[in-house]
Simulated scan of single mutants.
Amino acid sequence: MTTQAERDRNADAAPPESTHGIYVYGILGSSYALPDDLASIGDDETPVRLVSHEGLAAAISEVNLNRPLGTPDDLRSHEEVLDTIAAERTVLPMRFGAVVSSVDAVVDELLAQHHELFEAALAELDGTVQFTVGGRYLDSAHIREVVAEQPEVRELRESLQGVPPEAGYDERLRLGEMVSNAVVAKREADANQLIEAMSPYVAGTAVHEVGGEDDAFDVAMLVERGRRDDFENALDGLGEQWSGRIQLRLVGPLAPYDFLPER
């Protein structure tokens, strides 16, 4: 027989916490059918699906909350889902690791609560897709150009040849600073040339900092879908112009990570 005290304790007991949540990849219009083979985040390999509300949809999948998100495989799956959708439709990428408690929370706390914001952002990005163009200087072409173009650099460099490192320390520092400043200016000029050449086909650009010694530039471009072939052909032409100097790398189509409207 259950006593009153036991019944009171059972009533006050907290419900068990759920071991699963809903991972949200991105927001898009609801009139879209997802591919069947999208690789979802999580150990259970649950399918990616859409949950809709008044013309909007969120791409979601169920995830196990007993293990932390954030592995390289998780990030790859997150980007693969978004970029696969972006190849065909405009999608607003959510921050990596966005998890809510339930499908109802996706509708009530995300789609309904931010409906106007999402609609406006989708309209602003409609008809575009992101590509990223990277450039790498071949065989230190940028350094050779700096030496050839700047007599002061060339003369200082020649004057230090054969000088013991400890004897020319200050001058070597000055030479390094001069070359570094010249390389920064050259990278900026080359990025600007890229942007100008692609400007007829893009709706926006975002220049990223580069870290490698031979990196020339890394520029995100918001490309009009209807002009994608023209964009790629123009980029091929620029690549031929820079043959032997800069090697270009095109990544995309991607979700518009760099062009989400600020609200």
Rank of each mutant, 00 (worst) to 15 (best):
D190P: 01
E171R: 14
L111Q: 13
E149W: 06
G70T: 05
E79Y: 00
P93E: 09
A189R: 15
A182I: 00
V207L: 14
I85L: 10
V100E: 04
D12M: 06
D139Y: 02
G212W: 09
G244Q: 08
D258I: 07
V163K: 15
M1I: 08
T128I: 08
L111D: 11
E119A: 11
S140K: 15
H20L: 08
D83R: 14
V100D: 03
G42P: 04
R67T: 11
V91P: 07
P72A: 10
E79I: 00
E54K: 07
T3L: 12
I60G: 02
A141K: 09
Q4H: 07
I60A: 02
V179G: 01
F217P: 01
T205D: 04
H78V: 05
L38H: 09
R263Q: 06
A185P: 00
D190Y: 03
F118W: 08
L254M: 09
Y257I: 08
G244R: 08
Q4D: 15
Q247A: 13
L122M: 09
E79C: 04
V24N: 01
R154A: 06
L28H: 02
P68A: 15
V219Y: 02
V129R: 04
V129Y: 08
N10H: 09
H142N: 11
A148T: 13
D8T: 11
V207P: 11
T71G: 04
L222C: 01
V184Q: 15
H142R: 07
V202S: 05
T2Y: 05
F118D: 05
D230Y: 05
R136S: 13
S77R: 06
D74L: 07
F96W: 02
N10M: 11
I60Y: 05
S52P: 01
D83K: 11
V147T: 12
V184N: 14
N192S: 06
V99Y: 01
D190W: 09
S31D: 14
A120D: 07
H53F: 07
Y25P: 00
K186S: 11
A112E: 13
Y201D: 00
E166W: 12
I60H: 05
R249W: 01
L175C: 13
P164R: 09
N64E: 10
E232L: 09
L250E: 05
E158C: 00
G176I: 00
E116Q: 12
D214H: 14
D36H: 06
E158D: 05
P93T: 04
E145R: 07
G97C: 12
H142I: 13
H208E: 01
A86N: 07
V163W: 11
E196K: 05
M94V: 03
A206F: 15
R136H: 13
D36K: 14
L28T: 04
V48W: 11
L138V: 13
V146P: 04
Y201C: 01
D37F: 03
Q161I: 08
I22H: 14
V179A: 05
P93N: 10
D170V: 06
